[in-house]
Design a protein around this nucleic acid. Structure first.
Lengths: 99, 99
DNA sequence: AAACTATATTGCAATATTACTATATAGTTT
DNA sequence: AAACTATATAGTAATATTGCAATATAGTTT
């Protein structure tokens, strides 16, 4: 038997990042932020066929996963990639696929 | 406005693969298959703290996402990574993070 | 202070995910 | 053919996700 009681940190983190990437709207948002370096929520929602409130939810999900961060500059919020975690995710995926 | 009506193929595919990777048990299974080259469902479920039927569900999810394939060899089924799609996923992630 | 702007939150409904136990399937051995 | 083995599926319950309209928030301009 010897059932492991839990998963490793890497398994948990990769799953967490993947869950955040698991919706095309969030992939779109991240692609957009990669190109623009930074942007406002309005820029994003004007390009997607979903309501503002839904975009806001996706942004919150990406923030909670650590992939983006927002700088408040009223009345807008400027979003950008969280580079530290982005690099971590990149490394995790590279390791995962290269092994 | 000019709302796009849908997402690109790449956005959809990356989201689909990510959704499949969005659970630590499925990350574990794929890591296991990477190391073992191939294995049986029983090998996997003996290493995870979840029921056989739940492992079976995760295997089905990975199969539907195209990341693994099974060869029937009664009474066992030998699972392995689907190399074509694995390479595609790898390329999609590389592009996504390198841009 | 009232109106405005950009964004977030709430409340709700529909659907999907996760996990389990119990049962079914399919092929093998006795 | 009956018992066995490995795996899948059905049925069920709890929880999570997705999306929207309506409302709230917070700062700015008139």
């Amino acid at each position: 038997m010897s059932k492991s009681l839990t998963y490793t940190d890497k398994e948990e983190k990769l799953a967490q990042y993947s869950k955040a990437l698991g919706h095309p709207a969030r992939i779109f948002i991240l692609n957009f932020l990669e190109k623009q370096c930074s942007c406002f929520a309005g820029d994003i929602s004007s390009q997607l066929p979903i309501a503002n409130s839904t975009v806001s939810q996706h942004l919150t999900a990406l923030k909670e996963a650590g992939l983006i961060q927002g700088t408040i500059n009223p009345p807008t919020i400027k979003y950008c990639i969280n580079k530290t975690n982005w690099e971590e995710a990149k490394t995790l995926y590279r390791e995962f696929f290269e092994v």
